[in-house]
Structures are given as C-alpha cells and as structure tokens.
C-alpha cells in the first residue's frame, strides 16, 4: 500500500476529531458539568463534606470513570452517522490509525476534564492537596486504560442496536482491574496524614501493564471491527 503513513493518518483523524470537538463542544463541557454534579451527589450520598483515603479516591476515580463513559458513548457516533467507517475503509490507510486516533482523542478529552475536575475535587473535599501530585501518574495511567478499552469497545457498541447500553455494560467489568489498581494506590496517597508510598511502584506497574496489553489487543484486532 502506498498511501499515507499510519502516523500521518492518526494525526489527520485526531486533528479532525479535536477540531470537531472545538466547534461543537459536544463532549468536554458535558463531562465537566457531569463530574461536578457527581461530586454534589456524592457529598449527599455519603453525607460527608471532607474526604480522605479510600473514600476520597473512590469519589474521584468513579467520577472520572462515569465522565469517561459519556465521551466513550459518543466517540464513534459521528463516524456512524456521517460515513466515517466507510471512509476509513475506502482510504488507503491502515484501519488501526482510527483506533489510535480515537484513543488519543479520548486521552486529550480526559486530560482536559481532569484539569477542571481535580482542582474542583480538591476545593470541595480535601484538606490538603499534597497527595494529589503523586496521584497524577496514577490518574494518567488510568486515562490510558480508559482510552484504550474505550476506543476498542466503543465501535462495537456504536454499531449495535443497543448502543448506549452495550458500551457501559462491557466497559465497566473490563475496567475493574485498572480501577482496583488506581484505587488501591490512591487510598494510600490521599490519606489525611499525607501520602504513603507503600506499593506505589507496583500499582503504577500494574496500570502500565494493563494499558500496554489493551493497546496491543486494540492494535491487533481493530481492523476486524471495520470490515463490512
């Protein structure tokens, strides 16, 4: 095949997605609003105004997870409605470029969401933010897990008849391991008495391993989701 390289195809699709998001503002503002509302619900659901340790980590990570599901549900909707799937099949590029571009787009969305959601979380619930700094690598690796599994499962859900149902249904159990790892790391980092780095490196390793494996699986099988 003498088409453009996979790298330039990824850059083009990613640029297209980010431009569309910038013009329509469909996903990110909704995610930010949603996360803030979830915090309010947790404040009353748990009946707590200050959080630390495992409870704080749980509120932060579950909020990010639910906000990510919003973006994942919408990730391939434009592709289905406006013929993007046909276009990538016709274009002389590797179909995997679509997977990589969508995973990167999700990463960008999640990072922007967290630029708002983490400071708001600090403001709402935490006494001190010292645990948040070592929490950043944990959250970034969790973003990787959300992005790779999301970009793999979202086209399956989008092309099914029960779109909004299938995505979360498959993704939630699939995301249990990274949530377990990130929560276990965070529970120690966000302790009221300051961060405790017990097993920190092994949790980062487990998250990294999960990201790498799902990146490879997506790379290997994504083409089969595009055939028709």
């Amino acid at each position: 095949m003498n088409g453009p390289s996979t790298f330039s195809a990824v850059a083009t699709i990613l640029g297209k997605d980010l431009r569309v998001e910038l013009r329509t503002l469909q996903s990110i503002p909704a995610m930010v609003l949603f996360s803030t509302t979830i915090y309010v619900i947790f404040r009353f659901g748990l009946d707590r105004t200050q959080l630390d340790g495992g409870l704080a980590t749980g509120v932060l990570l579950v909020t990010i997870l639910f906000a990510a599901l919003l973006a994942i549900n919408r990730l391939f909707v434009a592709e289905r409605e406006q013929g993007g799937f046909e276009a990538i099949r016709l274009a002389p590029v590797d179909g995997t470029a679509l997977f990589l571009a969508k995973a990167l787009a999700l990463l960008v969305y999640l990072t922007i969401l967290e630029l708002f959601a983490i400071p708001v979380f600090w403001l709402f619930f935490l006494d001190s933010g010292t645990g948040l700094l070592p929490m950043l690598p944990v959250v970034l690796l969790l973003n990787g897990a959300l992005a790779t599994t999301g970009a793999l499962i979202s086209p399956i859900a989008t092309n099914s008849t029960a779109r909004d149902l299938i995505g979360p249904l498959i993704l939630l159990p699939l995301l249990v391991p990274p949530m377990v790892a990130a929560s276990a790391a965070g529970a120690k980092l966000l302790l009221a008495g300051g961060p405790d780095y017990d097993k920190y490196a092994s949790w980062l390793g487990a998250l990294g391993l999960y990201d790498a494996i799902f990146l490879l699986i997506g790379w290997a099988v994504f083409d089969f989701l595009l055939e028709d």
Binding site: T149, L152, I153, I156, I170, L174, V176, P177, P178, V180, A181, A206, L209, Y210, I213, F214, I217, A220, V221, F224, L225
Partner: peptide, 18 residues
C-alpha cells in the same frame, strides 16, 4: 470474537490485580 479475545487477555490480568 474481538470481545472474546479482549476478555481472554483480561482474565489473567484481573486475577493478578485483585
């Protein structure tokens, strides 16, 4: 099949992390 492959890889990872 895509699901079955992803889930197959998920099984050992999940046991390890839990």
């Amino acid at each position: 099949s895509v699901f079955a492959i992803a889930a197959g890889a998920f099984v050992p990872l999940n046991f390890m992390v839990v």
